Structures are given as structure tokens and as C-alpha cells.
Computed example of a mutant assay.
Amino acid sequence: MADISDLSAFRDGCVDAIWSSHSLEHIHDHQVPVALREFRRILKDDGLILVTMPDLESVAQLIVDGKAEDVAYQSPAGPITALDMVFGHRRSIENGNPFMAHKTGFTQHRLRRLLTEAGFARSMILRGRSLDLWAVGLMPGASRLLLTAPFR
């Protein structure tokens, strides 16, 4: 079994980009900074990371509004509620897939801080349309390229 907080199979600076979709919330909270540092370690100097995960602030608002068990949206795995976004997809866990449990969560502020602490030169974080966060973390070379690139 692979572990995103141990990417020792990869050498330093060997990857152009990393796409992490709904994975960081599945590792323990203390492993997140380690995983982000590993992502940064294996990225090239002009590389980037794109991550997405549930937005705890948006999900919390559903809970505050009394909609914790209401269907928030439909996914290929079935209906998703606020409780699924906080704790992991309950139906999958019930059906014997404990890896679907969520062990931590993210807000825009927290994710930006974690990316900065992991050593990314710049980050951009946006709220998505499905109660999710989308973030890009840029390595120093990518940040320099963006500052000098002619945009049309």
C-alpha cells in the first residue's frame, strides 16, 4: 500500500506537477505537513501542485443550517451529505472501505498556511462549486515564470 507522506520511491525534483484530488483529508492531521513537504521535495523548481478537497467552512454552514443529513450533491458513489464530507463517505465505510474515512479537514486559511509552511513559493486557493476547495501551490521557478510570462 502506498503512503503519500512517504514518497521516497521518487528522487528530489523529478516531477513537473502533482494532482491530488480528495486525498489529503484521508490521512491523519499530523501527516498532512509531511505529505505536502514530500510533494514539494519531488517537484521540479518550476513545478506545481493542484489539490482539491472538501471546504470545511462551507460544509459547516450546512450543518449550522440544520442540513447535516440532507443530500448536498450526487456523486458517482451516490448521494453526499455534509456528514459524509466531514467524516468520509458513510456508505462506502459501511460497505467495508475504511479508507474512505476522513481524518482531517481544510479551510482556505488553513490550506494556505500549510502550503506556505511546506515551502511553496506562492499559492492560490478558491472555493469550488461543490462545497470544495481548489488550490495551486507553486514552486519558486513556477512563481517566477508566472511573473514574467506574457498573458494574452
Rank of each mutant, 00 (worst) to 15 (best):
M1N: 06
A2N: 09
D3P: 02
I4K: 08
I4E: 05
S5Q: 06
S5M: 02
L7T: 06
L7Q: 02
S8N: 09
A9G: 11
A9K: 10
D16W: 00
A17N: 01
I18K: 08
S20Y: 01
S20V: 11
H22A: 15
S23T: 15
L24Q: 03
H26V: 10
H26F: 04
H26Q: 12
H28W: 08
H30Y: 07
Q31N: 10
L36N: 06
F39Y: 15
D45Y: 03
I49F: 05
V51P: 03
T52F: 03
T52K: 00
M53Q: 07
L56G: 01
L56S: 09
E57C: 05
A60W: 05
Q61L: 10
Q61F: 00
I63S: 03
V64W: 11
E69W: 14
E69S: 13
E69H: 13
V71E: 14
A72T: 12
A72F: 07
A72Q: 06
S75R: 02
S75V: 04
P76T: 04
A77E: 13
G78L: 08
G78E: 14
I80T: 13
I80L: 05
I80W: 03
T81V: 08
A82L: 10
L83S: 05
M85F: 01
F87V: 06
F87H: 11
G88H: 05
H89E: 09
R90L: 15
R91W: 05
R91Y: 08
S92C: 04
F99C: 02
F99Q: 10
M100R: 08
M100E: 15
F106V: 02
Q108H: 02
Q108S: 08
H109V: 08
R110T: 14
R113T: 15
R113P: 00
L114S: 01
L115D: 01
T116K: 15
A121D: 07
R122E: 15
R122G: 01
S123L: 01
S123K: 00
M124V: 12
I125L: 11
I125Y: 09
I125F: 10
R127T: 12
L133W: 12
L133Y: 11
W134R: 04
W134A: 11
A135W: 04
G137R: 04
M139W: 03
G141K: 04
G141M: 06
L145F: 07
L146T: 02
P150G: 04
P150I: 09
F151Q: 07
F151E: 12
